[in-house]
Write a protein that binds this DNA or RNA. Structure first.
Lengths: 347, 347
DNA sequence: ATGAAAGCGCTAACAG
DNA sequence: CTGTTAGCGCTTTCAT
C-alpha cells in the first residue's frame, strides 16, 4: 500500500532535529546553523518530503494564490449562453495577453492564477465565496463590460482586487488603465503626418468614458495641428456601426481623407464601406483603428492601430494585487499606461 | 480593526449546537434534524460565515482543485523565451477552446483550474511540486510537442493526470485523442465527392504518429473510392513546407486536382503556391486542411478543414481526471473522439 | 440525531 | 541558534 506522504515530523526525526528547525530550513529563514541546514537538506532528500500547503495556509492565513476573473454582465446566463461566452472570451487574444502578463509576474514567485468566469449573478457570488474561503488572496478582474457589478461586490466585501480599466461607477478599487486620450492623439498625429487635411472619426458610444477620452485626445491633437472642425459619427463598437458611421461621414463630408475609428471592428467596417464606395484605403482615405486586435491583422488592408501594452498592464495588476495582499499598500490607486501606434497598411 | 472572520465555532455558539452539527449542515450531510438545520442556516447567515478551505483541505487531504498545464519542451528557457512562448500559447484559440471545455465541467462543481506553463525543466519540477504539495489534486496536460517529458515525470511520481493526445512514448497515463485516421478519411471522401480524380497530400512528419494516421486514413478512403495511387509530399507542419510540398507535388503530377494538407498552415502554403502558379482554388485544385485553426478562416480562400471537437475533449479530460482523483477509476485508458469536417471555400 | 474529542501538518511565539 | 508548545479551523470516529 502507498504510505502516507512524509511530514515535517518525519524529516525532523530523520535529521535528528526538531520540527521547528526543519520548518526554518524549508522556509529559508536565517538563524540556522549551516551544518544543521545541510543535514536537514539531506533528510528532506532522503524522505522525499514536500510541504503540505493546506497546513501552511491554515496557519499563515494566506493561500498564496490569486484569482484571474473574466467578468461579464449576464443576468442569469444558462449553460448554453455561458458556454458561448466562455469560448468567445478565452479565445480572444486579448485574454491570452492578459494571462501572459499575469504569469510573468507570478511565475518567479511560484504562484499560479486560478481562472474564473463570472457571467451570472451566481458566478459573481462564487467569486466572492472563493475569496472569502481563502482559496485565493485576491482577484485580478478583467471586465468585458463597463457596467460589470463585480468590482462593487468585491469592494463591498473589502476583498483585495485590482481591475483592468477604471470602473465606470466610482468603486474604491485599484486599477490599471490606458491613457485613452494619448491614444486618440497618436491617431491624430499619424493622420496629420501622412498629409490628411480632412480627418474625421467614428467614435465609440459617448456614454463610455474611454470613448469620450479617445475622442477628446483626437480632437486636441488635431487642433494643435490646426484642424478644428472634425466630423464625428457616434458608433457602438460593432462592425455594423462602423459601416454606418462611415457612410454617414461620407455623405456629410465627401472630402474626408482620414478616419480614426475607436476600435478595430469599426475600422474594419469603415474600410469595407470605403472600398465599396470606390475609395482606396489608404490612398484616398487613411484609416486608423484601436486595440490592435486580431481583426487588425486580418482586415483588408491590415489596420494601423493604437495598441494597449496589455502584457505590461496585466503584470502591473499582479504586482499591485501582491502588494495589497501583503498589506504594503493602503488606498486604491490607478496606474495609467501609454498606448503605442502599430503601423500597417491602412494608414 | 477588522475582526477575525467567523469560524465554525462561532456559528455553533450562535446556533447553540456543536461544531460537528454545523459542519454536517454546511456539508449537506443528512442525519440532521430539519429544525436544527434551519437554526444553523440562520446562524450562518447571521455571522456571515464562510468555511475555511485550507482547514478543510488539511483534513480531507484534497485541494478540490486541478491544474491545467500547457507544456512545451524547452530545455532551459530564459525569461525572454518563456514570455514569447507564453503569449504565443495563450493567444492560440486552441488553448481558449481547451479552457472553455475544462471549465464547463468544473464550474458546476465549484472548481476552477489553476493555470500553469511548463517550458523548462525547472517549470516541470514546479508542476510536480505543486501537485505533491497538494495544491491541486491532479493535472490536465496539453503538450505542444510530442516529446514533452512532463507526462513521464507525472506518471513516475504516480500523480493523477490526463493528457490531451496520446503520448509518443508509452506512458501509463489516461488521455483523450482524436481519431486521426477518420480525419484523413473525411478529407478523402470530401475530395472524392466534389469530383476530384487526382487527389494528393502534403502529410505531416512521418515520425509523428498522428501524421501517419491521417495519411493512412486518407489513403484507405481513397482506395475505397477506387483511387490507389496517391502522390505524397512529406511536410513539417510549417507554412514553408506546405509551399514546398505543393510545388513538389505539382512538378511531379501536374494533373493534381485536390490536396489534403495535414494541417492548416501547410494548406495555406499550398493555396498560396497554387495561386502563384495560376491555379484557382478550389476550381482547379481543391484544398482541405486540418485543425480548423484561425488561419483556416483568414486564409485566402477560407479553408475547408478537419476539426477536432476540442471543447468536448477537454471536458472529458476533466471528467476522467475527476474520477481518477476520487479513486473511481484504476488503469489508464484512452478516449478517442471523431473529427468533423468544416466546409468553407477551398474545397 | 447530536456532541466530545482527537487530530490533519505546519508556523510562530517563547524559552532556553 | 534550537527546541517546546500552542494553536490555525475543520472533519470524523466514537459515544451517547
Amino acid at each position: 500500500m502507498s504510505r502516507q506522504p512524509p511530514t515535517l515530523e518525519d524529516v525532523a526525526r530523520a535529521a535528528g532535529v526538531s520540527r521547528a528547525t526543519v520548518s526554518r530550513v524549508v522556509n529559508g529563514v536565517r538563524n540556522v546553523d549551516p551544518a544543521l541546514q545541510e543535514i536537514v537538506f539531506r533528510a528532506i532528500e532522503l524522505t522525499g518530503y514536500a510541504p503540505n500547503r493546506a497546513a501552511r495556509s491554515l496557519v499563515i492565513r494566506r493561500a498564496e494564490t490569486v484569482a484571474l476573473v473574466v467578468s461579464g454582465v449576464g443576468g442569469a446566463a444558462d449553460d448554453e449562453a455561458r458556454e458561448v461566452f466562455a469560448t468567445r472570451v478565452f479565445t480572444d487574444p486579448f485574454f491570452g495577453r492578459v494571462v501572459g502578463g499575469v504569469m510573468s509576474f507570478l511565475r518567479p514567485r511560484s504562484m499560479h492564477p486560478v481562472l474564473m468566469l463570472a457571467e451570472s449573478d451566481a458566478d459573481r457570488q462564487e467569486v466572492v465565496s472563493f475569496l472569502r474561503q481563502g482559496r485565493a488572496d485576491g482577484a485580478l478582474v478583467v471586465s468585458t463590460h463597463p457596467d460589470d457589478p463585480l468590482p462593487a461586490l468585491l469592494a463591498g466585501a473589502k476583498l483585495p482586487a485590482v481591475l483592468f480599466a477604471r470602473p465606470s461607477r466610482a468603486v474604491p478599487l485599484t486599477y490599471v488603465d490606458l491613457d485613452h486620450r494619448a491614444g486618440g492623439a497618436l491617431a491624430a498625429r499619424h493622420l496629420l503626418a501622412r498629409g490628411c487635411r480632412r480627418p474625421a472619426t467614428v467614435s465609440g458610444p459617448l456614454d463610455v468614458r474611454a470613448s469620450r477620452e479617445r475622442l477628446a485626445g483626437f480632437r486636441e491633437a488635431l487642433a494643435d495641428g490646426g484642424v478644428t472642425d472634425v466630423p464625428l459619427a457616434e458608433g457602438g463598437f460593432t462592425l455594423a456601426s462602423g459601416i454606418e458611421g462611415m457612410a454617414d461621414l461620407l455623405a456629410r463630408h465627401p472630402d474626408v481623407d482620414g478616419v480614426f475609428a475607436a476600435n478595430d471592428l469599426m475600422a474594419q467596417g469603415a474600410c469595407r464601406l470605403l472600398r465599396q464606395r470606390g475609395r482606396r484605403v489608404p490612398d484616398d482615405v487613411a484609416v486608423v483603428g484601436f486595440d490592435d486586435s486580431g481583426v487588425a491583422v486580418t482586415c483588408e488592408p491590415p489596420l494601423t492601430s493604437v495598441r494597449q501594452p496589455v502584457e505590461r498592464m496585466a503584470e502591473e495588476m499582479a504586482r499591485l494585487l501582491d502588494s495589497q495582499v501583503r498589506g504594503e499598500s493602503q488606498a486604491p490607486t490607478g496606474v495609467v499606461f501609454d498606448p503605442e501606434l502599430v503601423v500597417r497598411a491602412s494608414a
